[in-house]
Design a protein around this nucleic acid. Structure first.
Lengths: 210, 210, 210, 210
DNA sequence: CATGAATGAGAATTCATTCAT
DNA sequence: TATGAATGAATTCTCATTCAT
């Protein structure tokens, strides 16, 4: 009789949403934001153009959410490490290392898109993401300083710089990894780089902790 | 009567070219790449739209060249320092400091616009520029390592990370300086950050050298 | 088991139909035809979009019926006056006055929205309504002429003009009433205007009759 | 050598603008605003879609200007009469008569479009036009009252009503003229209607003046 | 060479209507 | 019968590039 929103239907709705994001992700990974027109995304998701607008108010919102989706897990992981019981330096090193590992292993392409042009609204999302990521690092650095284990630097500046170093070093166009370097070695180097940068004491030990 | 490209004509040609680049620069600095339409640039340069195409094969080429123009001086300055006679650490510190000073002093906005993602056609140029800049730092780091004054790290990775740290820390959206911090202090911090990052010995002295 | 359209079901059907019209009326009154999308009307009626199509073959039909519904009462009232026993001039004056009163009192906004141009599909209905309203006035004028109390003019032209004067004067964009004038005074004026226009004799008396 | 905006070019520009308006006029006259899509208008004018935007900032502006263009002449004519030296009643009668003549003779279709739905911005133009037209009549009525030749009524209300009567009676959907009546007779009737409506004295003479 | 009007391929978004559940 | 998700045609506006003058 009456229409009922069954589980099956719910599942289809969720599927569509996911399908749209997935399609967008694939297209962006392949051809950048440039190629992510709404019609193309819809087609890739096997849906009509208008349907996309049932799930996202605008193209910009879709792309912004895509970005957040891609990065959310990374921030989560780093946050978990930041909240662990280890020593400041160990936590910081771990966070850098894990972030680097994931970036190199996983969505190298998606990360590259962090640097790619897009609509202003998408940039806002990017901004937010970086700010969040930097925030996690800033807190770790702050605690390191308070514990007397890091150099007395502006935690925000240091965090921004660390994030910049990570993104640029790992996934930017300069990334040595892209030119065939050994990932493990890159990770070791970048962890050491960041530890030194914040003036972490007992660097050797810390790195050994990994 | 054969056409002769006189000096006068040459001069006018050069003038127009420069005017176009200058106009583009102003527009990009003010409103980002978004507002740098060919017609707008032409108008700002006091020329007709079509004339732009006498000097640049396409909008992308124009913007790419604009980017190179803006950065050429920075790279030049850093290169000069890199080729000076000072000690590796001093040279490196100087390069970082001067770069930071110029970035903070010069139109921070223009920098932000240049380094923020903005236009797909320009990405290649951007990457090229960063690569070049990183190259200069890589050479300095390499020499520092060879001289036994820096930690033994991959110079390319370190250079990329330094560039990332500088850009993100100074002109990126997270830059503390953008939130009203004292520039001199930011510069001191970032120099120290980079020196530590590359494992420069006698850091204190080096910084004192400035 | 054969389907039986019970009274209960009939009632529900009528309810839904009424609910849709009511919702449409509210939306049109608030935001004009512009905002009367089928989905919006359905939502406001607490029904699903598709359900609207159970009761109206198309959006145009819905709006046309809405218009008729809104105006039916007005036409009814005017018709009742037209069929009363009073003298031609008195009837005419009364019809004008009552119409004006109702127009000014009743949601002026709704009226304005109804008479303002808004949706091509609805024009036919609008025309029909105006024609009907004019028809009632035409008959009154005709009788006034036949009784020798009105000037000998084309009743249809006069009726159309009277309707035009009423709508424009009372609810149109030029309506002085909309600019804060006293309603009672406006009504007096417009009745006098129309009486004079049709050449009603003993105008003073007629107006006094009210 | 250099491009020069010759007379020929100026003429072409003016031609294009005119061609666009003309094409729009034809399309609107034939199929109403509904069919006046930018692409259709451009095609009918023998131009590319984008070209329309060189001459009009938006579709709404184009249509609004079209409306103004269509009505400007009428208002001009009526204004000229309003400023003539004749007696108030004669001027008023003349204004009504000429307006009616032109409306019936000329662009009956275009006038009809005064009643047609359109974008909100176009409605504004319509509003403006009616206001202007009513303004001219209001001034005439005011002077008639001041000269003691018209009934003492609110000039604005009367003017609005006169405009309403004219538009509805002559070009509106109810207009008897549209149904094959003799134009000359219609004009006589409506002039008489309006003169009576404003309570003009010596009506006979005035009408005889025509 | 310079000009700037013309071009027209796109791309985002809306919403009446349909139809499987 | 009711539902509401899906559809996709339709439409406006932008802007890099061309080319007649």
């Amino acid at each position: 009789m009456a229409y009922r929103r069954t589980e099956k239907i719910e599942a289809r709705l969720a599927d569509n949403r996911a399908a749209i994001l997935k399609a967008a992700r694939r297209i962006v990974a392949d051809g950048g934001f440039q190629e992510a027109q709404v019609a193309a995304v819809a087609a890739a998701a096997g849906l009509a153009t208008g349907t996309v607008y049932r799930y996202f108010p605008s193209k910009a919102d879709l792309l912004a959410e895509l970005l957040r989706m891609i990065c959310a897990r990374e921030i989560e992981v780093v946050t978990a490490i930041a909240e662990s019981e280890a020593s400041p330096a160990a936590r910081f090193a771990d966070a850098v290392r894990v972030f680097a590992e994931r970036a190199l292993r996983g969505s190298r392409l998606a990360y590259a898109n962090i640097f790619e042009p897009a609509a202003p609204e998408v940039d806002d999302a990017r901004f937010e993401i970086r700010r969040e990521l930097a925030g996690v690092f800033a807190r770790m650095i702050e605690e390191g300083i308070r514990a007397g284990r890091f150099a007395r630097i502006d935690p925000n500046l240091a965090a921004a710089s660390v994030v910049g170093a990570l993104l640029e070093g790992l996934v930017g166009p300069l990334a040595p990894g892209r030119r065939g370097r050994d990932d493990a070695r890159v990770i070791l180097d970048i962890v050491a780089f960041c530890l030194r940068a914040v003036g972490a004491k007992e660097e050797g030990n810390v790195v050994a902790l990994r």
